[in-house]
Amino acid sequence: MGAIKSVDGSIEPQPFSLKAILPTMLAIVSGTIMVNLDGTVVNVAIPKLVERFGTDLMTFQWVITGYTLAMSAVIPIAGWLTDKYGSKRVFLLTIVAFTLSSVLCSFSQTVEQLIFYRILQGLSGGMVAPIGIAMVFKLAPPERRGSVLGLAQAPV
């Protein structure tokens, strides 16, 4: 249940409405899909990308490994950043950073550049899911959190 201030200054409970949080939920779902898709999309193109960059598979594996390690490394600081700067601000910043690093990946001329840009992607993308989950917990009342979180994570 949310609460609103009435004209006389008293706080009146307001029933929970999924419709009211829908725009935020769509942002969370879109961000989560983007990051998860990007974690696996490179896998289908490995043979062509190895050929394109003129490298070997052992070197190219760092494109995937660097992304995954970077994602894992930032999960613990996501909570601290949201406490310090606010979940909405940090979430939007990570989405922007993720998008910009994705653009940089598309302009990579060498495998080393691609590895570096994928690490940047992982650093920003690793915070999207934990911040999104925390935002769902703030948006939904305790009795509805399970179902709302299930909706937010269903596309994953």
Rank of each mutant, 00 (worst) to 15 (best):
K5F: 01
G150Q: 13
V111N: 12
T59S: 07
V74C: 00
K88A: 15
P130W: 02
A129W: 07
I115Y: 12
R89D: 08
I28F: 11
I46F: 10
A97F: 07
G54S: 06
G86A: 08
V148H: 05
K48A: 04
L139P: 01
V96N: 09
D8S: 00
G39T: 14
I4T: 01
T55Y: 14
A140V: 06
T110P: 00
I64F: 00
Q153E: 14
L57V: 11
I11E: 12
N36S: 10
T110F: 11
L37A: 12
I95N: 12
A70M: 00
G146V: 01
T110K: 11
P13G: 09
P15L: 04
Q121V: 00
T82D: 03
A152S: 11
K88P: 02
M1I: 00
G31N: 14
V74W: 01
V7R: 01
K48E: 08
A154I: 01
A3H: 03
A3Y: 03
G9H: 04
G31D: 14
A140L: 09
T59F: 06
T94E: 15
Q121G: 02
I119F: 11
S10M: 04
E143G: 03
R144G: 01
L92H: 05
L149A: 12
L81Q: 06
G66L: 08
G86Q: 10
Q113A: 09
G122L: 07
V29M: 15
W62C: 02
K138Q: 08
L57Y: 09
D38R: 10
C105K: 08
L151P: 00
L37C: 09
L69G: 04
L149I: 07
F53I: 08
E12M: 02
I75C: 03
F91K: 10
K19T: 03
V128H: 03
S72K: 07
S108N: 06
V42W: 15
I21R: 13
R52W: 13
V44D: 03
